[in-house]
Amino acid sequence: MDGSTISDLIIATVRMATPLLIVALAELYSERAGMVNIGLDGIMAFGALVGFLVCYWTGNPYLAVICAAVAGVGVNMVYAFCTITLCANQIVYGMAINIFAPALASFIYRVVFGVSSTLAQATLMKTVAIPVLKDIPLFGKLLFDQTPMVYLSYLLVIITAIYFNRTKSGLNYKAVGEYPKAAETMGINVIRQKYIACIICGFFAGAGGAYLTTCYVNTYSDGVVAGRGFIALAAVIFGRWTSPGVMMACLLFGFFDALQLRLQIGSNLIPYQLFQMIPYVMTLLALTLLGNKISGPKANCKPYFREER
């Protein structure tokens, strides 16, 4: 591998890690309030479609991302209402979103474009170089000549870390995921906090989906999400429910994703499917190695009944 291959690999790693990171942070916010949302994949698929459509019609990828985020909130509110207000099982409804949302996205796409072999194409978000910083030798161009989505997601990592560790509101937020009844007795509105968590989760998961169709490829196709929602879910566990940890996990998965693409190109003899497995195998491996020792928020996945006897 020569120098340019390595720098290509790093750029690709950052690009691949970004959607994972945004969505993993979405899940982090959700799980910190005790809401395990395995429907990320579905929300992403819907966000990807909405982002693509808005971008296709208006040509404005920024507007597209915002619309996708709002659509993500909309989809996630179904999950929120069923699991928070009706106290239904979180896994079941997360799964329901995974089945329902991509199918809806696929349906809408066909209604709009019909069934044809040519793919509609939209404009991609342009990279924005940060003045001064991009001129740093070696890394400057790699890290500071990216789309605004990339900068925002890393900024979000920092904000999240500060929020959960330094602010009162963040402390209260975490308490809801650990021991909601205790939080309630301390005057924290548990139900409201859980809804807020779901709004944040839907927002970022939708935006993460839109990243795929506005920054990554300029078309929409079914299965564009390719299980990234689940990898993000694993990244939260791998990152031990802290935003820096989640970032490292996403970069690791992003790296393997980028690597497998490079390996596919470089090899003619081995079937490409073998390389495509790499990120997923790494996810499995990471969870197997770590799964035993980890413990997330204590009340994760448990419905909260206020007047329970």
């Binding site: 009162k168 402390l171 975490k174 308490a175 650990e178 205790a182 939080a183 301390m186 924290i188 204590k298």
Partner: peptide, 23 residues
Amino acid sequence: MLVEAMTVFENIILGDRRSKKPF
């Protein structure tokens, strides 16, 4: 009603509305 993963201090100030400051 104590959050086990948090410190004594954090448990005491949970839900505190004494000052408006976010931090």
